[in-house]
């Protein structure tokens, strides 16, 4: 599979002298990838760079073979969609349907088609009953789902979620997980930041661990989540499902395959 996202020798600082990302080399293809790491590890910073919202201080990012330094955020938006950690950074229209149609209108320039895309995306997240509401009358969980819909409506090749499960109940966490699997099946490159290790275990084949701006490990989720030394060094926990099987013994997997 093509390396649709490629990051080379990436360094980034908000303020001169203090690098929050240090020499990151990584690429992404069609395998869904979870990014985990402590608060302040620079996960959000990293995905904002992939989206072209922040420019590398040093190093390069290529999206679909194009260097992000040589293109515009508007051009990149056709390929890379980002669901923001904080919905208020993303939402700016005063009606749900307008919010979701905004991206598609810019890309497809066709009102009818954009409307269709928007409605389908809203259906996927279960918000099609709220098309005429003001986003600020929605609860936080709904605003987060609205942001997901806005990204899906643009049908980007790369879909990035910054903490998609914030404020979601267990039912919706599962829904979002299933959405990740579906997107992956449809050939999208999915990247998601999360603190929920069971969510990582259930839905992502690959995991990256960021620790204080360094890429600590990159590999198969099943293997990385077993490596307690790595997780501990990065200040992370193992999934509950592992905790319980190691406390009870092997029988869990015998009685109840996990």
């Amino acid at each position: 599979m093509d390396l649709i996202v490629k990051v080379e020798n990436l360094w980034f600082s908000y303020k001169s002298g203090k690098f929050v990302l240090k020499n990151i080399n990584v690429s992404f293809d069609g395998v869904s990838t979870a990014i985990v790491g402590q608060n302040g590890a620079a996960k959000t910073t990293f995905v904002k760079i992939l989206k072209g919202l922040l420019k590398p201080t040093m190093g390069d990012v290529w999206i679909n073979g194009v260097n992000t330094k040589e293109t515009t955020v508007a051009q990149l938006a056709k390929v890379v969609g980002l669901v923001f950690q904080d919905p208020s950074e993303q939402i700016f229209k005063s009606k749900v349907i307008d919010e979701v149609m905004f991206g598609p209108l810019n890309i497809f320039r066709d009102k009818q088609y954009s409307y269709q895309m928007a409605i389908e995306a809203l259906k996927l997240v279960g918000l099609d009953g709220k098309v005429n509401e003001h986003p600020y009358d929605l609860t936080l969980s709904e605003r987060k789902l609205l942001c997901i819909a806005s990204v899906l409506a643009m049908d980007p090749k790369v879909v990035i979620f910054d903490e998609p499960t914030i404020a979601q109940d267990r039912y919706h966490i599962k829904k979002i997980g299933e959405l990740v699997l579906e997107l992956e099946k449809n050939g999208k490159t999915v990247i998601a930041i999360t603190h929920d290790m069971d969510f990582v275990f259930d839905y992502f084949k690959r995991t990256l661990v960021l620790h204080r701006g360094n890429l600590l490990v990159d590999g198969k989720t099943d293997e990385i989540l077993q490596r307690e030394d790595v997780l501990k060094a990065a200040g992370l926990d193992t999934p509950y499902i592992f905790k319980i099987s190691s406390s009870v013994g092997t029988v869990i997997s015998k009685l109840f395959p996990i």
Binding site: G37, Q38, N39, E163, A167, M197, G235, D237
Partner: peptide, 12 residues
């Protein structure tokens, strides 16, 4: 109200 929704395991 959901005080740990964005926290890592240490913060939680």
């Amino acid at each position: 109200d959901e005080p740990t929704s964005q926290l890592d395991s240490g913060g939680t």
